[in-house]
Design a protein around this nucleic acid. Sequence first.
DNA 1: GAGTGGTCTAGACCACACT
DNA 2: GTGTGGTCTAGACCACTCC
Lengths: 255, 255
Amino acid sequence: MATVQTPNPAAGDAAAGPAFSPLYQQIKALITRSLQVGEWKPGEAIASEMELAARFRVSQGTVRKAIDELSAENLLVRRQGKGTYVATHSEQQVQYRFLRLVPDEGGKVRVAERRFLDCRRTRAGAEVARALELKTGDPVIQARRLLLFGGRPVVLDDLWLPGGLFKGLTAERLSEHRGALYAFFESDFGVQMIRAEEKLRAVAASAADAPLLGVVQGAPLLSCERRTLTYGDKPVELRRGLYETSAHAYRNELN
Amino acid sequence: MATVQTPNPAAGDAAAGPAFSPLYQQIKALITRSLQVGEWKPGEAIASEMELAARFRVSQGTVRKAIDELSAENLLVRRQGKGTYVATHSEQQVQYRFLRLVPDEGGKVRVAERRFLDCRRTRAGAEVARALELKTGDPVIQARRLLLFGGRPVVLDDLWLPGGLFKGLTAERLSEHRGALYAFFESDFGVQMIRAEEKLRAVAASAADAPLLGVVQGAPLLSCERRTLTYGDKPVELRRGLYETSAHAYRNELN
DNA sequence: GAGTGGTCTAGACCACACT
DNA sequence: GTGTGGTCTAGACCACTCC
């Protein structure tokens, strides 16, 4: 490493174009790799900046810039005076990190009751296969659950997971776990949900779904289709949520 | 400035707590101030890093960190070899910077037809006043417009603007301008929209709105309530959009 | 006090755009 | 070539946490 510069060796340029990549980007990739293979587990501290600088033969400032970006992407969390930690879904603070639904009257009541309605092994249809980058017919696990706030049903989620990554997942284990679903996936299956893409639209409640959410057939529901990705932008979950938004809203910030 | 440190003078600590603020944050505030008072206009280049470093008696690295953050917040745009520019809504690249609606089948057709249905001076009701941080009864301008994609109506927007900031805004001028609405506000009224908060929910089309969007009464629509802010988080627009999402979706990324 | 991240500096050199 | 932002370094000191 050291003072690698222009015709950069670590950055791939086998057949592609110029492909210059600064040192800190290479360091960033190396750290990400370590996270991916589990050198440091979620919730643990990674090596200190000085240690990493020594390991990669680079200045602390360069390691710093790499960690800055990983931290901005929520893969790492810096804690002054303590160290840099691997982000995790298993913490009180970040419960439901990806759920943007907030109650209308600033109530901070976020004690959801969960009901798992279904969980079964099946095979990927064309649409699910495409979203999860599997082949049609590959094994997938499908589950359905209801979230209630203050006793009222608000979210009906259908989710599909690649069978290969979630071996041994059963309805029973789903029902038994405490805390967020992603925390469970992280601790029990080593699958770390890092980022997600969502597509929102308004739909009419179907005859089957309406009673579950306590609305009449045809009532407007917010449909939220989410594709959740892990390291390397590999899709590991497809989720379709139906939100009953008469007392909650999906909150978003634009910059 | 120079080497100001611990019991920081520039950072306010009149009555509050410790209120330590690093140098680069102070520089950031100073640059933001210059943007706010119009020292550099949208689309123009600001002073170079070296010039700013000299002006503020600070190292280039410190200016750099301040600009890094402003650039991450989309207030500034860096262009290697050229300079750092004030962000603007008046560029082909960033047309409809805050509109997250995308067509279903990856069509990149973004040539919206606009129809202004209404524009009138009125007074703020309780709700509008609260959202815009005005007093009930303060003058506001209300407008209504339709966006069509490929000839089909997709978005029905109602918007409220503080009368004091948009003196001389008429239905005619609204209809005549080319390009994005925010570009028009920026160039003709000096109001720069820099970030926004949105609340999404699903609603049923009203008898009045349904025909405008070409749907039947009661059809599900995506309601998008937006509060747009300028420098200092001052609200300068309230907007309520109704999106017909049978062929479009609201796209979001979660990190 | 020792160790960690956070800030600030000064200087060197690289990549890019204009002229 | 000149000027701009972009990267990298080395060293100093500050703020925070824990022992």
